[in-house]
Every structure is written in structure tokens, then in C-alpha cells.
Amino acid sequence: MKAAVVTFPGSNRERDIARALKHASGVAPAMVWHADADLPAGTDLVVLPGGFSYGDYLRCGAIAARSNIMAAVQAHAARGGLVLGVCNGFQILCEAQLLPGVLMRNDRLRFMCKRQHLRVERADTAFTHRYAQGQVIDVCIAHGEGNWTADADAVARIEGEGLVAFRYCDANGVVSPETNCNGSVNSIAGIYSEKRNVLGMMPHPENLIDALVGGTDGRGLFESLATRMAA
């Protein structure tokens, strides 16, 4: 398994995600600086971590999406390489147009940090094969701008092609306006690219890998990646 975590100025969950990757695979990921031009040779997975890259100034993810390393990330994705963006990483992927849509301010206009159930919409991807189809997982959110939206055509295409990765739901997997924590279209918490090699998601599976610290429902994602890449 060769994973690389990109650190932008203002990234702040890069250590959390590196810990989750190491926990699942036994190997610490390479930490890559945003100003670098290249990813380490043989990188299988690139992770854009959570945080407030460039302070969220201008627009979340907008400046980071234009940093040096992103050309290499784009090329990696184009080759079919795996890319995971969590929270600010998701915002960066949208700004870099690796994923469609945009993340607006939460509909309640406040930053929200809380536990949140997600429904795994498909369990046949590199990111989720250790989960079951329709499984409900309990992870957490911590964001002020996670309200995903896109134009009607893009939403129809994402839904039609099965590119929704996770939806916000209740403990029984029921998706409703009450369980939609930030106002996202169709309660979407995460989406895939067309070839399902790029995943962007607002919730933080990397903070739910330990029974002592809230639970282990986030592990499945990292174990999926680890076993897929070990193969």
C-alpha cells in the first residue's frame, strides 16, 4: 500500500488521516507538501485531508485547488489512481473539478461538530467494499460549509449513475429532512467520480477508528483501501 497525504497550509486533520491509514494498513503514508510538483513514485492513493486550507479565505478549497501538487493529483486521478478527499479535501476536489458540485454554508449557518449516521450507498468500490450495501455507519461531522449542491442535470447524472457514496440518515438508515445535517441536496454526504476512483465526503471516518474514542465505524473505509491496495 502506498498512500500519500497532501498537507496544505491550514490543513489540520492530516495527522488524523495518516493515523487511520497506518492503523488499517500497518504502513505510515507519505506526507506530501503542497508546493511539491510530484507525488512519490508508485503512489496508489492520494488523500486530501480535512482542515481550513488557506484559512478558507476566498472560498473553501479554492486556493488549495490551484496549488502546485494538484496537477500531479489530477494526473493521478486521470490514470485511474485513487483519490480521497475528506471535508476540506472534498471542497478542494470540487474546486479542482475532480468532482462536480460545490459545498455551501450549512443551512443552519453554523459550524456543526457531532456524531452522524451515514448510509453506505454502494459497497462495491475500492473505498467501501468492507462495508455492506445499505449499511448504516456512525461517524462524525465537523464542518461549517458542507452543504453540497449542483445543478439539476449534474444531480440527475450522479443519482442515475450511482455515484452517491454516502447519505446522511438516522440510526435505522432512514433518510429524511430531519437527518440532513447541513442541507445537502438529497442528503448527499459523499460522491464518487465517474470511474469511482475519486471519493469526496464531508464526514470524518478517520476520527472513528477506536472504540475508546467513540467507535470503530470509520475503519471500514481505510480497511477497504488497505486490502484493495495490498491485493
Binding site: R19, A20, C113, K114, A142, I209, L212, V213, G214
Partner: peptide, 28 residues
């Protein structure tokens, strides 16, 4: 406290709402 990120760093053993917060030192 839901407006505060109380989970980042992954070591919050006791979050807000208890008598005292508990934060694990690295991997314990």
C-alpha cells in the same frame, strides 16, 4: 459545544457534557 470541533486529533475520550474532559495522550 456542537459549534466547537471537539473530535479533531482523535483522542477525545470524554467529550463535553461530562464532569471533566478526557484527552488521551497520543496512542495512550
Amino acid at each position: 459545544w456542537e459549534q466547537y470541533d471537539h473530535l479533531i486529533l482523535g483522542n477525545t475520550v470524554q467529550k463535553p457534557g461530562g464532569d471533566a474532559a478526557i484527552v488521551r495522550i497520543e496512542d495512550g
